[in-house]
Amino acid sequence: MTEALRSPLQIVPDPLPPEPVVRLRDVSRAFGATVVLDSLNLSIAPGEFVALLGRSGSGKTTLLRTLAALDPPQAQDIRLPGSRATVFQDARLLPWKRVWQNVALGLRGRDARPRALAALEEVGLAHRVDAWPLTLSGGEAQRAAIARALVREPELLLLDEPFAALDALTRMKMHALVLALWQRHRPALLLVTHDVEEAMALADRVLVLDRGRIVAEERLLAPRGSRGAIVRDLRATLLRHLGIDVGGAAYADLLERHA
């Protein structure tokens, strides 16, 4: 009673943070004796751009498959939005369907084709809509895969190292594309990557996964385009969590030190 009298202002609640679209609580996953996800906790807010860093084999894909509900469900505390879409590292277009049919895969209704064409237009692939997937370049195939995910207007967009196999220039163009699409459609987005620069350039928040646990979490408050000042320190921090001690050295000088 006395407390309420002493500070009545505290009763006014803060504006509620938005309900997360993704929430994992103590989620574990093991293949036989190997524990791949180890009581992992993760929330993603609506419209948030999260990058997930991790060494090869750290469990990134397993986490992403969990978020895509691709593995048989287990008794775990997982909340996922109804509409999700995934872009895989290898574009995984069905080779026997033309590009637009791949984008329209699983869409219902008569407007499937116009919707697919609009999505392809948006990713800059309007001139290849009738092509066979095996004739696409790596970058074009990933554009088609992004269109296929986008056309579903997902609340949660999952990208599993989608740019790892692309050359540097194509990768830059794809980064710009993904950023533009995310800003226009605002899905919650989880980008799995092992590229620290990519994570820092694109995400609102960077997570580091190691042996099935999230071992680091960094928020990037500076807006994209003016992050130059913070990335140097952040890069060193993230790389340290990935097991590489840079200590401010340039990559060119690093190999000698780790030899």
Binding site: A68, L70, R84, A85, T86, F88, D90, R92, L94, L105, G106, R148, R152
Partner: peptide, 15 residues
């Protein structure tokens, strides 16, 4: 992997 991808886009068994 193609099966996975197609499943992730909501295709049922028949599809």
């Amino acid at each position: 992997r193609l099966m996975d991808a197609a499943r992730s886009f909501g295709l049922g068994r028949a599809a």
